[in-house]
Design a protein around this nucleic acid. Structure first.
Lengths: 133, 133
DNA sequence: ATAAGCACCGTACTATGGTACGGAGTCAAG
DNA sequence: CTTGACTCCGTACCATAGTACGGTGCTTAT
C-alpha cells in the first residue's frame, strides 16, 4: 500500500515546508482537502503539482498575488483564459524591459569602472553620488 | 537667510517621506545630525545627496542591505564596487532569461488556445493542471 | 505671548512571504 | 495499550521597507 500523502509527504514531494502549505491554504492559493471525520487530511497529486507551479512562477519573479491571477486562468473558459494569459504576457514583457534598462545602466557603470585608472575614485559611486544634473 | 534644512525640508529635497529619513537613521543608513541643546536638527546637503544615492541604487534593484555595503565602499574602493555591480548584473540577467523562458511558454499556450476549437477545454488550463516539472 | 505648525520620539501598524510554537488530537508500531 | 511521531489549529514571530500615530516640546509669526 502506498504511503498516504499527508501534509508532510505532500510538502516533501513539492519541496516546501509544511508551514508553507498551511500558509498557501490560509491565503486561498491552494485548496485544503476536506478533513475526514477522524484522521488527517490526504493531499491529491494536483496539490503537489500546483505548489510546484507556484514555486516555478516565484522563481520567475512573480508575487503570490500575480500567481493567484495566473491560477485563476483555471476558470474553464478558454477565451477568458487566453485574454488573461495575454495580459500576463504583457506584464512579463514589461518586467523584462525594466530589467533590461537596469542591466543597461549597470553595464555602463561597470564599463566605466574598468576603464577607470584612478582606484581611489569609482565612477559607479560617483554616478550615484552625482546630484547636480 | 536660507531656510534651515530641517527634516521636512531635507525630505522634500530628497523626494522622500520624513519617516523614511527617520527609518534610514534608525537602521544606520544615514547619520543623524547632532541635536542642538535646544531646537531641531539641521540636515547637511550631504544627507540629501546620500538619500538620493539610495533612491537611485534602489531603482537599479539594490536592496538597502546591498546599498549599505555600497556606501561603505564609498571610501574609494572601485574594484570591490565593480565586483558587487557585476554580481548584481548577473542576477538581473538571470531573471531576464527566466522571464523570457516563461514568456515563451505562455506564448505557446496562447497560440494553442487560438487554434483550439473546443471552447470548454482549454489547452492552457490542461497544461497547468498536468504539468509536473 | 499665544497659537499654529513643525520636530522629536517611541511604538505600532502596513504588506509580503513565509516560519515557529504550544497544546491537543490521532495514527501506527511494538 | 502505551509511546512516539505526526497532524491540526491558532497565534505569534522573522525580515524587508517603510508608514502612521499620539503626546510633548520647540519655533515662528502675528
Amino acid at each position: 500500500m502506498d504511503r498516504k500523502r499527508t501534509i508532510s509527504v505532500a510538502a516533501a514531494e513539492a519541496g516546501v515546508n509544511i508551514e508553507t502549505i498551511r500558509y498557501y491554504q490560509r491565503i486561498g492559493l491552494i485548496e485544503e482537502p476536506a478533513k475526514p471525520l477522524s484522521g488527517f487530511r490526504i493531499y491529491p497529486q494536483a496539490t503537489v503539482n500546483r505548489i510546484r507551479f507556484i514555486q516555478r512562477a516565484q522563481a520567475l519573479g512573480f508575487s503570490l498575488a500575480e500567481i493567484r491571477i495566473l491560477l485563476e486562468l483555471d476558470d474553464g473558459n478558454c477565451k477568458k483564459t487566453q485574454q488573461l494569459a495575454e495580459q500576463k504576457l504583457a506584464l512579463i514583457q514589461q518586467k523584462i524591459n525594466d530589467l533590461n534598462t537596469m542591466a543597461g545602466v549597470l553595464k555602463q557603470q561597470v564599463k566605466a569602472c574598468k576603464t577607470n585608472t584612478d582606484t581611489a575614485c569609482c565612477p559607479l559611486i560617483s554616478s550615484l553620488n552625482s546630484e547636480d544634473g
